[in-house]
Design a protein around this nucleic acid. Sequence first.
DNA 1: TTTT
DNA 2: TTTT
Lengths: 172, 172, 172, 172
Amino acid sequence: MAGSVNKVILVGNLGRDPEVRRLGSGEPVVSLRIATSESWKDKNSGERKEKTEWHSVVIFNENLAKVAENYLKKGSKVYLEGQLQTRKWQDQSGQEKYTTEIVLQRFRGELTILDSRGGAGVDQGDQQGADGQAREGDFGNVSPMQRRSAPALVGAGGSGSRYSQIDDDIPF
Amino acid sequence: MAGSVNKVILVGNLGRDPEVRRLGSGEPVVSLRIATSESWKDKNSGERKEKTEWHSVVIFNENLAKVAENYLKKGSKVYLEGQLQTRKWQDQSGQEKYTTEIVLQRFRGELTILDSRGGAGVDQGDQQGADGQAREGDFGNVSPMQRRSAPALVGAGGSGSRYSQIDDDIPF
Amino acid sequence: MAGSVNKVILVGNLGRDPEVRRLGSGEPVVSLRIATSESWKDKNSGERKEKTEWHSVVIFNENLAKVAENYLKKGSKVYLEGQLQTRKWQDQSGQEKYTTEIVLQRFRGELTILDSRGGAGVDQGDQQGADGQAREGDFGNVSPMQRRSAPALVGAGGSGSRYSQIDDDIPF
Amino acid sequence: MAGSVNKVILVGNLGRDPEVRRLGSGEPVVSLRIATSESWKDKNSGERKEKTEWHSVVIFNENLAKVAENYLKKGSKVYLEGQLQTRKWQDQSGQEKYTTEIVLQRFRGELTILDSRGGAGVDQGDQQGADGQAREGDFGNVSPMQRRSAPALVGAGGSGSRYSQIDDDIPF
DNA sequence: TTTT
DNA sequence: TTTT
């Protein structure tokens, strides 16, 4: 439809480490499980109550997938923008199921790490500085402090060469 | 969780008339089915392609539910803000199913009608003018032009009295 | 600062035709003046009141600038996303002034035309279809119905060749 | 104008402590100065570059003003939503000036504290729990850990009674 | 399964 | 004036 907008904005924490699968090209596609929650004081009982919502996020955006793979882990707090997408699938018994996910398509979406130490903002528009000059291959300002504690584990099947390529791209 | 955000922004069109059910208190809860879509030209075939995404929206916000009930219909274009919520249910055969909806909770969310004639902005914060004076009971600027063509049908089970009460509330 | 977000979302109407200036490269930079407004019923006087806010928008994003140049005009309704930027300048008398604008940087921001006839969505991520295949040069789904009424006037200083180049890019 | 949206979303840090002034009613109006910034690696020089943008925020929303007054301080990181508003004023020399601010009107806007320890989410819709029950007077889930280090200084001109009233409202 |  |  002409003239439509489909946007999700989340600020929440990863419930587990990112899951990475690779396309034929070797590019990572990263899945995240993000929790958001609300809490309030029940007016009758006076108790604190809390409700957590879990969100499934899939990152096809190449640069953001690399960042997620390399700098996020269980517990990380992020800001992200994606779009809603519902897909149909069949379970083992042939039952039809629907799953709604927040998808960051290629060249789309945003991801910003919010953890206090090593937090870093990254989004797909970061190919350009405030000076208006485009900078291809530059994908943002991820701080090394944010690096996952076990970099050797970074990237399922990831090779050192891929990782150093990221070192070239990431500006630090 | 402290410090989280769960927000969906949609601009799209209703695929069918709003569905209204009533709480014990008589307040409407309105369900919408909203389409958003993207189109692009396939680089290989040169064909125009389009993909439509359908979204289920549930409006508990009392004022916005009244507006949806009375001023939206199949084809209407809206801007809306709500939050993602996934609920579990069982179909007739006892199968577990999950449905993800965009929910506008009581006192939360936004809904703005974007149709060219009679479009009108309404949101829950509209209890106050630009002058900073609170105005309870005032819920926005819905134009009569936007009224559904068959007001007699407005509101499943709705009575004339309820409708005129809305007339008191809606500022026109 | 690591971990920051600076985003403006507007739905409003152009108060005048887009203003286009050209960079040395010939790329258009387009300025828009957008009105948003709120209305409410004054609780004391019972009068309808309305307050309009005017926003200055500057589009450096190349594809979106072309769309704005060619498909927007006074009165057009748009959805747009950009970022806040305040710049300092001096008036003729040497007085320091500050102007805050909503900027759509290169490769960033979104612009979607919302007018009922010929409305069309365009954003910088539209280089890729729902199939996940990137499509460079494709910048969205602008409908010919949306074309400004006087295409001969399109593009200050614009040549026919540039315009037909747009015809190649725009998918219709 | 019917059908418009005027929304700003910021994630950033306070450059200084909140400034509080009081309305005749004693209600606080809080001004914040928020920094957002982007950084990138210059492709030519290879240097890290950074550009910071400063935003002026004014909070009329009563509950959010109290939270800002009591729980934010220089350096705090927040997520907030408000609307753009430009006002005209005259400096001492009679010169006309314009200032653009992000305003959180009464009953509108959102504010969520993002600091890692003691971070807390608060927004004006928090008068209701996930159970859909409205809870007046409840304005969110601010953690005591987030309290400013010198609570005695909290609230310019604030009395102990006002502060304990907040203690009643804030759910901890 | 996160976070506070 | 913040933050990394």
